[in-house]
Design a protein around this nucleic acid. Structure first.
Length: 421
DNA sequence: TCTGGGGTCCTAGGACCC
DNA sequence: TCTGGGGTCCTAGGACCC
């Protein structure tokens, strides 16, 4: 058995923990740069504010219904996520942290010693008590069914936040009413194809299709999903998260950038963040892609969205190397006369740092910057993120995000602790 | 004025090898 | 009537997730 635990309206709930007067009120959390709505409280959902709605187009609804608006505060959400995951870890021998607000729990054999509904209720009560974050739980024999159970628990108040699917009868009862587009692994394209070409409207309709047809239209992924929905577990719990194969750091800018200097500072900053992420997972990268793009929404402005791939002589995770090569790439693609809205750096061809292939034609020691990077990370760990950084990343931060409605980092910064008077 | 930022896996087809 | 048969690697594109 697997449990899927999902935090309800996670970012919105995080904001509420530190401001309980928001309970019962509609609130939304915006994406970086305050662009789109990426989280909504139930009250905001009821007002018809869709996921991904563009913030500035919602002005009327927000004013009319006194919707509270927040900028994203990932430092806060990340820390709250850690707290929730730590609590969940106490209820299972193995946990897979699936996303910032979701985790799979290994519940194998639990039904022999526990009533699963009661056990779920217990998890729910204790996590919410200890973190302030409300959660929903779905328990079932496969991951895909646990997802189904979780959604059922969340949508239907009758379940009080915990849904257990532990018999074929219960599973069928739910699947015949479960919309196909809500199934994990069925996105917009597949839902449309299944609806229109095969009259599939529910999860049950889907598992009634032949293996052959599913394999032909959706490959082995689709076939695996069918087995999972039938109760045959194909997806294991993955408690150890593998290293990333690609790492990307990109942002939209608070204001458009025309000149090379601020753009290069942004790219250098993103490059050093990629290098930091590489060091954190103990890997090096051999390839760097730099991209810049104009605002694709402003039709009157000239558009230009180039990218450039560079290969390092030897894979590296040194900020000095990654920044140097990223800036070389930027020089190749930068053109005067455009207003750039966004830039990003992607590092790929990632290898473990102790398995470096050295370069026959380069005399450089690949471990040259190892000590200085270690010192850099130690200092920043102690004094705060990016307190010590490369000069190329600049001091102006002309490109910084728009974050008009950001709350404080209540749980991670001594300077920003909550004041109680 | 204003439109997010990350990731993964699978498949088909082309080029090449012996 | 009757095409050889077995591989690998790489890339682009398409689907999906949160």
């Amino acid at each position: 058995m697997f449990a899927l635990v999902d935090c309800n309206n996670f970012y919105a709930s995080c904001e509420r923990v530190f401001n309980p007067t928001l309970n019962g009120k509609p609130i939304v959390v915006l994406s970086n740069n305050d662009g789109c709505v990426i989280a909504r409280s139930n009250e905001a959902k009821l007002l018809g504010i869709p996921m991904g709605a563009v913030a500035f187009q919602l002005k009327e609804v927000i004013e009319k219904h006194q919707v509270k608006v927040f900028s994203s505060n990932y430092t806060l959400y990340g820390d709250m996520s850690n707290r929730v995951m730590t609590e969940l870890g106490k209820f299972t021998p193995e946990i897979e942290i699936y996303s910032i607000d979701e985790a799979f729990l290994d519940m194998a054999g639990f039904d022999r010693y526990h009533n699963l509904i009661e056990y779920g209720q217990k998890i729910k009560k204790i996590v919410t008590r200890n973190t302030g974050i409300p959660i929903s739980i779905g328990i079932a024999p496969t991951k895909a069914l646990a997802k189904v159970a979780n959604r059922t628990a969340k949508k239907n108040p009758m379940f009080q936040g915990v849904c257990v699917l532990d018999s074929p009868e219960k599973i069928t009862e739910i699947l015949v009413k479960f919309p196909i587009e809500d199934v994990w692994g069925i996105g917009g394209r597949y839902a449309k194809m299944l609806n229109q070409q095969h009259q599939v409207n529910t999860a049950q309709d889907f598992i009634n299709l032949s293996d052959n047809l599913i394999q032909k239209k959706m490959g082995v992924v689709g076939l695996r999903l069918k087995k999972e929905l039938l109760g045959f577990s194909c997806l294991k719990l993955e408690s150890i998260s593998p290293n990333k194969q690609n790492i990307c750091t990109s942002r939209s800018f608070g204001e458009m950038l025309k000149d090379y200097a601020p753009l290069s500072e942004a790219v250098a900053t993103f490059a050093s963040r990629c290098a930091f992420k590489l060091r954190k997972q103990g890997t090096c990268a051999k390839t760097i892609t730099v991209f810049i793009t104009t605002n694709r929404f402003s039709e009157k402005e000239p558009q230009y969205s180039p990218s450039c791939v560079v290969t390092l002589p030897t894979a590296s995770n040194s900020s000095i190397d990654i920044v140097e090569y990223s800036l070389k790439a930027l020089q190749r693609i930068y053109r005067k006369g455009y207003k750039f809205k966004k830039a990003g750096v992607i590092v790929s061809e990632i290898v473990p740092k102790d398995q470096l292939q050295t370069n026959l034609f380069e005399n450089k020691n690949p471990k040259k910057h190892q000590d200085i990077m270690k010192s850099l990370d130690t200092l920043n760990n102690w004094y705060g993120r990016e307190k010590v950084r490369l000069a190329a990343t600049g001091t102006g931060r002309k490109w910084k995000l728009r974050q008009e409605f950001k709350t404080k980092c209540f749980t991670t910064n001594w300077e920003e602790l909550m004041e109680v008077r």
